[in-house]
Design a protein around this nucleic acid. Structure first.
Length: 637
RNA sequence: GCUAGCGUAGCUCAGCUGGUAGAGCAGCUGACUUGUAAUCAGCAGGUCACCGGUUCGACUCCGGUCGCUAGCUCCA
């Protein structure tokens, strides 16, 4: 027997007999580590504790309290869920069961339609399996054997998956009577799962392989932790997150509403309009500084325009149509064709380029009913659109300019964002060469700006690839907001030209871009981001004046007038209620400042300032409060 | 669009195995004139989403439609 040299992450190394398992090494290093170990990473590859080391390797022990350890733990929990389903339902067909950010799910096919009422029974069976404490063993079969095995068990989806694998050996994990093909690793035993720290959360339909043309499977989502308290904390966090839901806050803070009379067509209330208008003011200011001009184009335009743009061929199903004087018209789903008409309205010189035309354009799209979601996914929304017409050699600078503008605007709200590069979809216009050229230009712009990004294959617009900027909502769901699309198709289709230095006509390049994405979605994100407590510059009401009795009403209105004259949004709560009541009301409405005025304040010409988070700040002169507040608003703090 | 669930007063929710609805908050009226997160009393408010069926009788059971929620698909 020869020795193998194990190098640990800290650089130290140890010698063991060839064939030593990771579990043995972990216990050899220390019993504490041994007990906490769930798997290993050999030369960067995750493997089971029972994995035998046959040569010199770099080894990392994965412990239960690490992120990777928890992931393995949850993966085993998913297998236990699958095992429970197989035990409970004869005709269950297993599909896939991966881990996700906060838990795991398993997809399966079953004649019986499950409901959440069935969770209790399934969880009980899972607990039983955990208690029975099966060793979890890795089994390797040849591809042919693997297929035969799955056919024998009637697992058609697994057969399909294995048939498409390239490897000749397929690994399985067996626990008791249950066996499931899986890459692993897994916990060494089902009994390592805590019976009181997992929970099945919800049930959903999910298409096999994510394709809506396929069979719809049933999916059970669950989560698992190594401690009961962690599970409880997680569930508590979910509850707290739900309180930030923009749909709830929108109603509570009287910002907007949705009605059956117009599904997906949001109604903005006066307070919601304040936020929206502040956002627009900020947007306009930043765009003015970045060299944009603004236009406005019609909502309804002749159908022929949409045929020319390619929307008729590629986007018709998502559009609304109408008729005017027996002519066919369409309600715009995008602003570009209208904007193009503005560009084409006169001759353009190379000296004019780049031309940056911004438009807060109201678009309508027929989104499928099941996809609507508060303000995040609606059927009419205002895009903070702009189209940049430029020379080919200006592309790089223009793309960078937009990326920087996105960063500036998102930073004003403290948003973290994810960047995706979306490439050519199946349903696309134009040659592969042009797409390739446009895609690599976008990629270069991302790299030049030092952004991390992921590639989203086939998710581009039908006329060009795009860089998408994603923001997260209260539950961590990702929503596309900003987008930059490089387009060589529309200039061609609309025969866009500029006169070059040589006096000849040339083709400009077009960049479509939105920073906020849509005002509606962005506001939804904003509401959840701030949990309704908007920074003062955005707050619908910035200060609530609270007189203690009617005797101070005159003074209250006097203060109101002074602040209003300075442009501050202020209200007087003139109701005959106790101070505590009015304060509570203002707190619930997340008003940044409450100004309490009693006889003392009248006497001294002050207001007692209460800040919504810090509480009572004491009395200050009205003038001082005003200047202070104006400065905060100006600085957007 | 698909799968599952849900739809009772402006809001949040009760309503047992079918016998034509109730609370709190909000609203209105009155009293109280109040010092940093809810003063008291009274009043009013519902074709139980809509349409049809079963039944002597339906908020309750069944079917359909619409809307909402979670997820899938699709997307700003």
């Amino acid at each position: 027997m020869s020795q193998v040299k194990i190098t640990l992450p800290d650089g130290s190394s140890r010698e063991y007999q060839q064939g030593v398992t990771i579990k043995e090494i972990a216990f050899d290093i220390g019993p504490g580590l041994g007990r906490a170990s769930v798997a290993g990473r050999v030369n960067g590859q995750e493997v089971d504790l029972a994995y035998q080391i046959e040569e010199d390797v770099e080894l990392e022990i994965i412990t239960i309290d690490s992120e990777d350890g928890l992931d393995i733990y949850r993966h085993t929990a998913a297998h236990v869920l699958a095992q429970a389903l197989v035990r409970l339902f004869d005709d269950v067909q297993l599909a896939i069961g991966p881990t996700i950010d906060d838990g795991f799910y398993y997809d399966f096919d079953l004649e019986k339609r499950l409901s959440e009422d069935d969770f209790e029974q399934i969880e009980a069976e899972m607990k039983e399996i955990i208690k029975e404490g099966y060793e979890i063993e890795r089994v390797e079969l040849s591809k042919a054997e693997a297929i035969a095995k799955m056919k024998e068990l009637g697992m058609d989806y697994k057969v399909e998956l294995i048939e498409e694998m390239e490897d000749e050996v397929v690994s399985f994990y067996q626990q008791g009577e249950f066996i499931d093909p899986c890459r692993g690793p897994h916990l060494p035993s089902t009994k390592m799962l805590k019976t009181n720290a997992f929970k099945l959360l919800n049930l959903a339909g999910a298409y096999w392989r994510g394709d809506e043309n396929n069979q719809m499977l049933q999916r059970i989502y669950g989560t698992a932790f190594t401690k009961k308290s962690d599970l409880e904390e997680h569930l508590h966090r979910l509850e707290e997150a739900k309180k930030r839901d923009h749909r709830k806050l929108g109603q509570k803070l009287d910002l907007f509403s949705l009605h059956e009379e117009g599904p997906g067509f949001p109604f903005f209330h006066p307070k919601g309009m304040v936020v929206r208008n502040q956002l627009i003011d900020f947007w306009k200011e930043e765009h003015r500084k970045a060299g944009y001009e603004e236009i406005k184009t019609p909502i309804i335009l002749n159908q022929e325009l949409w045929e020319q743009s390619g929307h008729w061929d590629h986007y018709r199903d998502d559009m609304y149509f109408t008729e005017i004087d027996e002519q066919d018209y369409a309600v715009k789903p995008m602003n570009c064709p209208g904007g193009i008409l503005v560009y084409k309205d006169r001759m353009r010189s190379y000296r004019d380029l780049p031309i940056r035309l911004g438009e807060l354009g109201l678009v309508h799209r027929h989104e499928r009913s099941g996809t609507l979601h508060g303000l995040m996914r609606v059927r009419n929304f205002t895009q903070d659109d702009a189209h940049i017409y430029c020379l080919p050699e200006q592309i790089e600078d223009e793309l960078s300019g937009v990326i920087k503008l996105v960063d500036t605007i998102y930073n004003a709200f403290g948003f973290k964002y994810n960047v995706e590069l979306s490439t050519k979809p199946d349903k696309a216009m134009g040659s592969d060469e042009l797409w390739e050229q446009a895609t690599s230009a976008l990629k270069e712009a991302i790299l030049a700006n030092d952004l991390d990004y992921e590639v989203n294959e086939g998710d581009g617009a039908f006329y060009g690839p795009k860089i998408d900027f994603h923001l997260e909502d209260c539950l961590g769901r990702s929503w596309q907001c900003g987008t930059i699309q490089l387009d060589f198709q529309m200039p061609e289709r609309f025969d866009l030209t500029y006169i070059g230095q040589d006096g000849e006509e040339h083709r400009p390049v077009m960049i479509h871009r939105a920073i906020l994405g849509s005002l509606e979605r962005f506001m939804g994100i904003l509401i959840e981001h701030y949990a309704g407590a908007f920074p003062t510059w955005l707050a619908p009401i910035q200060a609530e004046i609270i007189p203690i009795t009617d005797d101070q009403l005159d003074y209250a209105y006097q203060v109101k007038e002074e602040l209003e004259e300075a442009g501050i949004r202020v209200e007087v709560d003139s109701r005959q209620e106790k101070v505590g009541y009015k304060i509570r009301e203002a707190q619930v409405q997340q008003i940044p400042y409450m100004l309490i005025v009693g006889d003392d304040e009248i006497e001294a010409g002050t207001v007692s300032v209460r800040e919504r988070r810090e509480g009572d700040l004491g009395a200050v002169k009205v003038e001082e409060f005003k200047n202070d507040l104006l400065e905060k608003i100006e600085k957007k703090v």
